[in-house]
């Protein structure tokens, strides 16, 4: 289970980041409330490379290094395969940040813990980025089934 964006149709407008930020931290998707009364952080990075914008977000890896490296058991996978962080357990050692080859988890500015994409599991709705992408460039990645861990391929096998 993961989302991805088709670089050919990503505008780089950054709306995904805005709606992502507003979807978390109790703002319930209200952009104005989030940005006027808080300083929400998105869990998405947009990377410009060779004239295209790439959507850098958690892949919810099958054999997720962040889960395996988490010293406190805060990083977990839910029944739907979504990797999320339980910040009440997080001790801010940032090992997850170190082991993520995509540089996805971020330091939370507001409070201890980290920020990462949880596919909007709290709101139990469609991920805000996917829902609000004006060009439908963000899609569910259907193909990435349980293909095993690339870490296996990189480090093992």
């Amino acid at each position: 289970m993961k989302i991805t964006a088709i670089p050919d149709y990503c505008l780089g407008c950054g709306l995904c980041r805005i709606y992502c930020a507003a979807a978390h931290d109790g703002f319930q998707g209200n952009v104005l409330r989030a940005f006027k009364h808080g300083s929400p952080l998105p869990r998405i990075n947009l990377i410009n490379w060779q004239g295209l914008t790439y959507f850098n977000v958690c892949r919810h890896c099958q054999d997720a290094p962040c889960i395996n490296a988490c010293i406190s058991g805060a990083m977990q996978r839910d029944e739907n395969g979504r990797v999320y962080v339980d910040n009440s357990r997080c001790v801010s050692c940032y090992t997850c940040i170190l082991v993520c080859p995509f540089g996805h988890p971020q330091v939370s500015r507001e409070r201890p813990g980290i920020l990462k994409c949880d596919l909007c599991r709290e709101s139990n709705r469609e991920p805000a980025c996917l829902k609000h992408c004006p060009n439908e460039a963000i899609i569910w990645d259907e193909e990435s089934g349980p293909t095993g861990s690339a870490k296996n391929k990189v480090h093992g096998e």
Binding site: N45, N48, Y54, R59, A64, S144, G148
Partner: peptide
Amino acid sequence: TIANLPALYWQKIWKGEKNDSIEC
């Protein structure tokens, strides 16, 4: 910044993503 990382890294990441050889 993360965005300024050498292009070769991103190339590996994005190309890898297409053929699914690097998942994580």
